[in-house]
Design a protein around this nucleic acid. Structure first.
Lengths: 207, 207
DNA sequence: ACGTGTGAATTTCTTCACAGCC
DNA sequence: GGCTGTGAAGAAATTCACACGT
């Protein structure tokens, strides 16, 4: 969020979509172009070109973009050309679903630890891999494993306090499933997932 | 998406956030103002006023906004002043977590049916309320219950085909958890939830 | 005095259109 | 001929700043 802030966040947010499109287009050949990519994603060809040009010159006139090459470039830009360790904080319903979801590790995001404050859950193993540990071990886990990303699935009332602890222990990015706006230092990256907000957005257009 | 389209979608998308903030500010008094609301959400006071002014004059000079009144107004605008029925399509991990999540019905979004194509799941009851039914009953369920919203949690490869069926049977809004862009008629409202995209956005700013 | 609602100014984002290279 | 990368133009979103009602 420093030298990086030159590039508008709205553009950064589209890069993961480009990547996803490329992963599908890859099956149909080894090059693509801004028109095809745009049609696939519902953006204009010009926007695709402008966006990508912020980061370099990845295409060739007359030819378009080499899919493999462009994918690699975007992965590098997004810092996802290497593995990330994550900790899951809160092992209720959502937490369990997350532990059982293979999509994270398929994309190089690995849940290496899970904690919960409920003593009844501590010690249980989910998915043959992740053993739920006590929240008292939080600091130690984060620091010995060198974890930078947390997924927060605790009740709304506890989210702020827990997020502050995570930051204190060294977490730099939080994906929060709790329906509350977290108030944290500016250098902490936060993303929210709240399906109720999405539904409320949908219903505006219904009826 | 018709007469409504006068108002930019980017503004509509903020209304649910305003509502969420009001629900919390409610505990501290019965009026608020654009400055307080803005600080709470990280928006400018001017933006809050501009946004709300698109829909009416909800505030009073010198006083601000009555929280109860404003909440009701926003609920009406978003069409969430009444209950909505939803169907859950796909009862795997995410589907199960959704059935067990009370946040939907707390916000007047009720899962009234759940279907899956896996015969082993059909007949099972989750959360004492929802019995999983066969995907063959999809059309009949949607039409007899008059359901307009679906939550789609099937594998990526099946999402497009399933979404088309849902639309054919009368669904108007889809909240999709599948990591694929759905290609559907313009009058169908779609929102996506994909935590991997959120993580890839976070990592851009890390390291 | 306080704080809304709103035109006007400003900033940001998107599209246009074309020179230049494959 | 096809398609990129990019200044310039255009559109959209945000902020400013203030008249006006309470």
């Amino acid at each position: 969020m420093d030298k990086k802030k030159e590039i508008p966040d709205i553009i950064v947010a589209r890069l993961p979509l480009y990547l996803r499109a490329l992963n599908i287009l890859r099956e149909k050949g080894n090059t693509t172009n801004s028109k095809e990519l745009g049609e696939f994603l519902g953006f204009s060809a010009a926007q695709i070109r402008k966006d990508l040009s912020q980061f370099g010159e990845f295409g060739k006139q007359g030819t378009g973009y080499n899919i493999e090459f462009l994918s690699r470039q975007i992965e590098t830009i997004l810092n996802i050309d290497d593995d990330w360790k994550m900790i899951l904080v809160g092992c209720g319903n959502i937490g369990h679903a997350i532990m059982n979801y293979s999509g994270f590790s398929r994309n190089r995001f690995h849940i290496v630890a899970a904690v919960d404050s409920n003593p009844e859950l501590v010690g249980k193993t989910v998915n043959d891999v992740i053993g739920i540990r006590s929240i008292d071990d939080l600091q130690q886990i984060i620091q010995t494993e060198g974890i930078q990303i947390a997924m927060l699935t605790v009740p709304a009332a506890e989210a702020q306090k827990m997020a502050e602890k995570l930051v204190e222990y060294g977490i730099k990015g939080i994906l929060s499933y709790a329906p509350v706006l977290l108030n944290l230092p500016d250098d902490i990256q936060i993303e929210y997932i709240d399906p109720v907000l999405s539904l409320q957005h949908i219903t505006y257009y219904l009826k």
